[in-house]
Amino acid sequence: MKDSNCKNNFVELQALLKGKEDLTPPCDLESDFLEDFHLKLRSESIQQSSLSLFGERLQERLSNFLKPTIVWSSASLATVTLALILGYSLNKEQLSENEIASHNSPIDSQYILKVKSQEGIDFDGTIPTFSNLEQDF
């Protein structure tokens, strides 16, 4: 694509120069133009190849970066999920143990755990409340 554009430009340039044949003194405009043009082409070509190289390197680096990142992210997510599940289970277990231990007495703590879970008792506030759903007396 680039080559064809260059050729076209060159053809156009030749056509332009042809129109300048009558110009005196015969100038080396063509050669100057061509030289400039070639320099320009070379520069563009270098830029083009640099860009390609940069693109390739970028792609490579991105690929190198993303691959472990994806692996790490997945691993981290899995670890966090596992930790949360374990934490929740342990906390739940610990809470139950603490509640039982906190009595340090023959209180029927199992009953409290039972009412908490089955009768909708709520200890989150400073005052315990029941849901109205249980009407079993």
């Binding site: 340090n104 209180i107 409290i112 009412v115 008792i121």
Partner: peptide, 23 residues
Amino acid sequence: STAIEEKKKVREEDREIYIHDLM
């Protein structure tokens, strides 16, 4: 809110806690 502090105080004074009803 006050149970933990009070029970801690009771234990520090080496007094026995017979029962604490959470409800």
